[in-house]
């Protein structure tokens, strides 16, 4: 019969393969669930169906659109073609300003309304999220 060494090797190889397959499966599965897509207001306007998944919307904060209450914040993201209303309660980053680039992450209520969970803004004055830049150029 096979020696002990061969058996241990075989066991080892099987172990490596099963764990590799298992891990690949886990990773792919987890990716599917946790990937967040980026869309511009125009992309959202063209959606056939409102998904219940979390998305990111990027564009410019429309001038004079920010409304502040104690707990909530309401503003409009525009790509100069289409607009979307965003509501948010929580902390905003430093450079969240009217007329500047912004990315909001959250859930769509309908094509014109996003309930945001997180607001991201650029790190410095000259920086514009690449998504926003492209969305701008695309229009």
């Amino acid at each position: 019969m096979y020696g002990k060494k061969v058996k241990i090797r075989a066991f080892f190889i099987i172990l490596v393969f099963t764990s590799a397959i298992l891990i690949t499966f886990l990773v792919i599965n987890s990716l599917k669930e946790n990937v967040v897509f980026f869309k511009s207001p125009t992309d959202i306007n063209n959606l056939n169906q409102i998904e219940s998944k979390k998305i990111r919307v990027g564009g410019m904060v429309k001038k004079n659109s920010i409304e502040i209450e104690n707990k909530n914040l309401k503003f409009i993201i525009t790509d100069f073609k289409n607009e979307i209303i965003v509501t948010f309660s929580g902390a905003v980053p430093n450079l969240f300003e009217e007329g500047k680039g912004v990315v909001a992450e959250g859930y769509l209520e309908d094509r014109k309304y996003l309930k945001a969970e997180k607001i991201l803004a650029k790190h410095d004055e000259n920086y514009m999220p690449p998504e926003v830049k492209e969305a701008m150029q695309g229009n």
Binding site: V27, S30, L31, E33, N34, V36, F38, R56, E131
Partner: peptide, 27 residues
């Protein structure tokens, strides 16, 4: 995977995605 996948996907089909903390936490 979490870091490279968005880059990879953007090159393949121009989709822009981000992989958030839940992905890493879960795995």
């Amino acid at each position: 995977v979490g870091t490279a996948y968005p880059i990879f996907l953007e090159v393949i089909n121009d989709a822009k995605i981000s992989v958030g903390p839940p992905f890493y936490h879960k795995l």
